[in-house]
Design a protein around this nucleic acid. Structure first.
Lengths: 166, 166
DNA sequence: GTGTATTAATTGATAGAACAACTAATACGA
DNA sequence: TCGTATTAGTTGTTCTATCAATTAATACAC
């Protein structure tokens, strides 16, 4: 098997990309833990619900949109429910289905947390880039998602409201 | 506190960026687990050592380069040592210091795994981008690291050898 | 209709990550 | 040179993630 190595330029780009993949989520996660006592994933779950009609989604759909397995989501939902941030109810028409709905407390949590999170995103990402670079980043991420997520599962709530976009 | 929201374009870019941050590491991790029985982080540790002089680094330096805390690295090093992939020895001049060194088996592991990993990186990332986009991605990641890692800790082995670049 | 297959979600067990507490060795100040 | 502070790592505990097994409800074939 002959290996196609990365050429020198690709290599330098990749080293930096790896660093970004490591550092950016870590810093967002750490910020959310500090200001909201939420993991990045927990915040993401709440944010997805907050964008959905009735602030409610069935577990399996929520799992798809957060790229989580159902077991993982189920555990997280149990903890969030214990904290009063969301509520689970069985669907009437199909009693296998569980609907997860944001409570008022959960909604307030998103309302308070989202601005701080957005500010963090802005200062870590958008403030560091020129408008051209933002455009380029949009095209690059689009191209990458063509490979990583051809079905587009993670881009469903594409930009409904401006509130809790991540 | 007045919130500066993201405008519509930034928002769409960010949604996709979030998806990439979630999916790309997950797919690289899952690939490495399958082909090498290594987590992404474990592979990264071995790769960093493989680039270092004597294939050896002190634990604290290795921690900086992998963006890990010392406790985390210590646990991982214990497991890798148990698998015979690296060896830890106390330094003579300062006996507080532990040197982690890649064993022959560990080196072979990197030699076998790196090409498969690089192929995965190529197919998930570089094959999806035009040469211009790769250049742009290089500039963008550089700008981001100016904020995320101003000290440049994670870019130390900048492109010494072409082997085990990630 | 009854039995089987499929779907939706939860539960339980094991492995990994994060944080705090601890140990051991060196540096340093009076 | 004695005591304290600092540095380098490890260990232990708790929380989260992952995978397998299980439960429960619906769909479907005969």
């Amino acid at each position: 098997m002959t290996t196609r190595w990365l050429d020198d330029q690709d290599l330098r780009v990749w080293v930096r990309m790896v660093a970004v993949l490591e550092l950016l989520p870590a810093q967002l996660d750490s910020h959310l833990r500090r200001v909201a006592d939420l993991t990045y994933f927990e915040y993401y779950v709440l944010a997805m619900l907050s964008e959905a009609p009735e602030r409610s989604l069935r577990m399996s759909e929520l799992a798809v949109r957060t790229n989580a397995t159902l077991p993982r989501l189920s555990h997280v939902a149990r903890r969030l429910e214990a904290r009063g941030l969301l509520q689970r109810t069985t669907a009437h028409d199909d009693r296998r289905v569980t609907m997860a709905r944001l409570t008022e407390v959960g909604w307030d949590k998103v309302l308070v947390t989202a601005p701080e999170h957005v500010e963090q995103v802005r200062s870590l990402v958008f403030d560091a880039l020129t408008p051209e670079q933002v455009t380029q980043l949009g095209e690059i991420t689009e191209a990458l998602l063509g490979v990583l997520d051809p079905e587009g599962h993670m881009s469903v709530p594409y930009s409904r409201h401006a509130l809790d976009d991540l």
